[in-house]
Design a protein around this nucleic acid. Sequence first.
DNA 1: ATGGTTGGCCCCCAA
Length: 268
Amino acid sequence: MSDQIIVATWNINSVRLRQELLFKLMTDAAPDVICLQETKVPDELFPGDLGAQLGLPHVLMRGMKGYNGVAIFSRFPITIQSGMPDWCAKGDCRHICAKMQIGNRQIMIHNFYVPAGGDVPDREINPKYGHKLDFIAEARAHFERHPPVSSILVGDLNIAPMENDVWNHKQLLGVVSHTPEETTGLNAWRNAGFIDAVRHFVPDNEKLYTWWSYRNRDWRASNRGRRLDHIWVSRDFRNGLAYYRILTNARDWDRSSDHVPVIIGLNL
DNA sequence: ATGGTTGGCCCCCAA
């Protein structure tokens, strides 16, 4: 017998402002696990009973004042995995790792918020870009030293790695999120032991987006999207991949995030 | 080449 677990990832862009939208996510996708990025709230101010109200009572969070912040809501008990690296020694809140026991299987869930990287794709001029490249290089090195098993890695990775992960490949080659340095780095990280769970289902020549800028009058009409939000699974989970969903309609939810939820069903 | 919008917080920063 195999259990199926449904995992969602979403850059919610302030969990306090948009917590009501999580109930829509529950209605539409019935996830067992929700991983959030950009919660933008210190732990002591995190909405305390939100998880219980969602029916996902096991909650881990790592937040700070004003920006960054990640959280995991789960239907099943989870415990934090301690001893993870402090990426780029910044002490910021861009990663949380949970262990989950389902039956006799122990599953690891990594929730990442990769630095956006600023505007100029040159680390000499723009330290944020250097931070981003260093972050993904460290993450790659970590998973090469510790190859993932029974692991799910999700998050806003802030990189659209493939040509059809952006609305115009040539035009975005010099734009942070789609530069060759970033896409090469992200692919190397993934190849440390993961499969792109969404591209597992969707051919490379098909456009896929999870983010549309706020700076468009009509995001759906212009459709200048990028696929910045990802779900990867370790190679031992390949045969368990059951389905994926990108909740594009969430971009039209009331006061929406600029990112939409990405979901997979995984048979364990 | 530029501007466009949003959230958090304390007036400008990060995205």
